[in-house]
Lab assay of single mutants.
Amino acid sequence: AVCQVIGMYDYTAQNDDELAFNKGQIINVLNKEDPDWWKGEVNGQVGLFPSNYVKLTT
């Protein structure tokens, strides 16, 4: 993983390639090539999510 982030809001996947997560959930970021849509993993599920829905862990 590149880094870990925390969901600031609940996110519901809109497409099959997206990653759903809940507020407060830890997401392992796998790829930040696109500044707006990062690739991440939660509980074995991998997908894209909007980078503005998360904050970096300290």
Rank of each mutant, 00 (worst) to 15 (best):
F49T: 01
N52L: 06
V54D: 00
D34R: 12
K55V: 09
P35F: 06
G44D: 08
N28M: 09
M8E: 15
S51N: 07
V42D: 05
E33A: 11
K32W: 12
D17K: 12
V5K: 04
I6L: 07
L56F: 12
K23T: 14
A20L: 03
V42A: 14
V29Y: 07
D10S: 12
A13S: 07
E18L: 03
G24R: 01
A1G: 11
S51W: 01
N52A: 11
I27T: 01
S51A: 13
V5A: 13
Y53M: 15
F49I: 11
N22S: 14
L56D: 12
N28C: 05
D10W: 07
Q4G: 05
L56E: 14
V5D: 04
V29R: 01
G44P: 02
G7M: 04
N22K: 13
N22G: 14
N52Q: 12
N22L: 10
V46Y: 09
D10V: 05
E41P: 00
V29Q: 00
V42M: 12
D10P: 10
T58F: 09
N28S: 15
L48F: 15
G7S: 15
L30E: 00
G24V: 01
W37M: 14
L19C: 05
G24E: 01
L48S: 10
K23N: 07
Q14K: 15
Q45R: 13
G47R: 03
T57S: 11
D34L: 05
N52W: 08
F49G: 02
D36M: 13
T57C: 12
D17A: 09
Y11P: 03
E33T: 13
N43I: 00
G47E: 02
T12D: 11
N28E: 11
Q4R: 09
S51T: 09
Y9M: 15
A20P: 12
W37D: 05
N31Q: 12
D17H: 09
Y11W: 00
K32M: 13
T57A: 13
I27D: 04
N31K: 09
T57L: 12
D17Y: 09
V46H: 06
V54S: 01
V29M: 01
T12S: 10
D16L: 09
N15A: 12
Y9E: 15
A20G: 15
W38F: 01
T57I: 12
